[in-house]
Amino acid sequence: DHDVVPEDKFQETLHLKEKEGCPQAFHALLSWLLTQDSTAILDFWRVLFKDYNLERYGRLQPILDSFPKDVDLSQPRKGRKPPAVPKALVPPPRLPTKRKASEEARAAAPAALTPRGTASPGSQLKAKPPKKPESSAEQQRLPLGNGIQTMSASVQRAVAMSSGDVPGARGAVEGILIQQVFESGGSKKCIQVGGEFYTPSKFEDSGSGKNKARSSSGPKPLVRAKGAQGAAPGGGEARLGQQGSVPAPLALPSDPQLHQKNEDECAVCRDGGELICCDGCPRAFHLACLSPPLREIPSGTWRCSSCLQATVQEVQPRAEEPRPQEPPVETPLPPGLRSAGEEVRGPPGEPLAGMDTTLVYKHLPAPPSAAPLPGLDSSALHPLLCVGPEGQQNLAPGARCGVCGDGTDVLRCTHCAAAFHWRCHFPAGTSRPGTGLRCRSCSGDVTPAPVEGVLAPSPARLAPGPAKDDTASHEPALHRDDLESLLSEHTFDGILQWAIQSMARPAAPFPS
């Protein structure tokens, strides 16, 4: 592969990997390779389809078979030569091979799209000592099968071997295949498990690692696999990028399955594409389908809103127990993405979901129960707010008499603000006073009005108090039968009158 990737590009890729991570280095090298001529790309395919690569990765054979028959990708048995050289000459001794072996032994695996480039050397060096003999053996194999790289107009793939297949390693990572398949204008990513390549439709969760975000852009890794992070704060999961590491605690105790298979379609829109997988259930989501939507993949363990709600429900009964003089119970939860139609709101002032922060849900004790107040519409209280300059209440639009249902020339009671006709409430011909108009209920007259088809109010509507207090003497005590009587009149003013009279009014101040 030294004929494909020059030394300066190799060093530039290593520097970019240390600065921005393996995914960015892979993407940059792939983009550079696509700008080369067809001879360089053909050399790339020839390096990929060597015999030892085909033996190690069985899924490469179907890719090789898909090439046109007129494309010669065979390799000479006596060494490598550029395709432009007409004579089959043995190339001179390859010093770059020693360079590659020494550099890969030092860096474990470079971040390139060629056999030198995919593992994360920093994480491997940190986690190597417990498994040094086995990992050293794996390093000797890295130059042979560490990076199976493929690129063409139909298929483009980048393979990364790992030393996680050490025997006896619980939940060992089998390997990473960062794979971009450009077929019919689409893009897919796969993962390699035990020599087999699994596409998103049959993606397997190998051991402790999972394909957290099938994305090839942005600074985030394709698999949430930063070796420096180790395990999740809650004892979460091992990262795919942690090559040759000792077994780590796999999943939280509440995880239903340690080796679950995540779905390959969004649980909201039932469509495929780039998904984020939940650590607590097999569901996966688009970032845009979450509520609120996320802009980037959160670091650490992530769970959907259903799993978060289940966790909150487990903690909430203990938080609601009476604990005198104790601060509110704080339950730190990872930043969760909410699927459509589901929402768990945190306290005000918290950062938005999706940031690399930890939301704190506070379970406050329930407030003391209070008697429910009568629910009145805002339009129902409008007549009470229509007060004239002299303190006389004006008529609201649409006000109707509670007896006849007519809204023409209605009066407004100064005591309960109900609309009424003087002739309907006082049919006996009582003279109307000039000021202080009161309806039949507030004036103490319980004589029913002779209106055909309208039920008369119940005599129990009024329960006047002592006459010594004029204001308190007109406080009506309405009961269920009074409400039914008012409802039978089918008037809004009657219902409003009952609601206003049912509310307690402050006692009249004593004259000074």
Rank of each mutant, 00 (worst) to 15 (best):
A417T: 05
A380I: 14
L359F: 12
P332S: 12
L352Q: 13
G349H: 13
G280Y: 12
D255T: 08
P253L: 12
F492G: 02
T408N: 07
T301H: 07
V246Q: 00
R345G: 09
S305F: 09
S291G: 10
A284K: 03
W422H: 07
L487I: 13
I500D: 05
A370Q: 09
L496G: 01
C281W: 06
P365N: 05
G241N: 10
L287F: 13
Q260R: 10
S502F: 04
G444V: 12
G375W: 14
E263M: 12
A366F: 15
L373W: 06
A366H: 15
G436N: 10
A419G: 07
A371R: 10
D482N: 05
S443T: 13
S254G: 13
L437D: 05
C304Q: 15
E320S: 12
S488A: 07
G465L: 11
R423S: 06
S306L: 07
C439P: 00
L333N: 07
S488K: 01
D377Y: 13
C386I: 06
L455W: 14
E350F: 15
A319W: 14
L359E: 03
R412H: 04
C439L: 01
S306Y: 11
R318P: 10
D255E: 05
P347C: 04
E330M: 15
L333E: 14
V446G: 08
R303H: 07
P351A: 10
L275N: 04
V312W: 15
P389S: 07
L258I: 08
S431R: 09
G336I: 12
F510S: 04
A288F: 11
Q392C: 06
E343L: 12
P282G: 05
T358A: 11
L381F: 14
T435K: 06
M355P: 12
D264F: 07
G280R: 07
R283I: 13
P374T: 12
A477G: 09
Q501L: 03
L333M: 05
V315T: 10
C439H: 00
V360A: 10
P372T: 12
P427I: 10
L487H: 03
G349Q: 13
P464T: 11
E321Y: 14
C307H: 15
D255K: 05
I297N: 08
L411R: 12
D255W: 15
P383I: 02
S502Y: 00
L384S: 05
E452D: 10
M503T: 12
T358W: 15
D482W: 01
G436H: 13
A463S: 10
A310S: 09
D356P: 09
F426L: 04
V246F: 15
A251E: 05
I276Y: 13
C404I: 02
D409N: 09
L359V: 14
I495T: 02
A267C: 14
T414C: 03
M355Y: 01
G436E: 06
T408S: 10
A284T: 06
P292C: 10
R283D: 14
G444K: 11
R323M: 12
T301L: 11
G244V: 11
W302R: 14
L496V: 08
S458K: 04
C269F: 05
L290F: 15
F426R: 04
E452I: 11
P383F: 04
T331I: 07
G280M: 01
Q392T: 09
G444P: 15
C442F: 02
E296Y: 14
A428W: 10
P433V: 11
P397G: 13
C404N: 04
A288C: 09
L437V: 08
C281N: 10
D409H: 04
P368A: 05
V329Q: 12
L294Q: 14
V387I: 07
A472F: 06
S458N: 09
A267N: 08
P327F: 13
G465I: 08
C386A: 06
A504E: 09
N262Y: 11
P249W: 11
L308N: 10
A267T: 10
G336Q: 14
T357L: 13
P328G: 13
N262T: 12
P293R: 12
G402H: 03
L411G: 13
L333I: 08
V315A: 11
A284P: 13
F492Q: 00
P365C: 03
P476R: 07
A428L: 13
L486E: 08
P383D: 00
S431L: 11
L275H: 14
E321M: 15
G453H: 13
E489S: 02
A472D: 06
E489C: 02
E330L: 14
N262F: 08
T357A: 06
E296L: 12
A370F: 11
T408G: 04
L337I: 13
T491I: 02
P509G: 09
E263L: 07
A284G: 09
S291E: 07
P328I: 11
I276R: 08
V246A: 15
P322T: 11
L483H: 06
H479R: 04
F510N: 05
V454C: 06
A310Y: 11
C266A: 05
E326G: 10
S458R: 05
F426P: 05
P367T: 08
T471E: 09
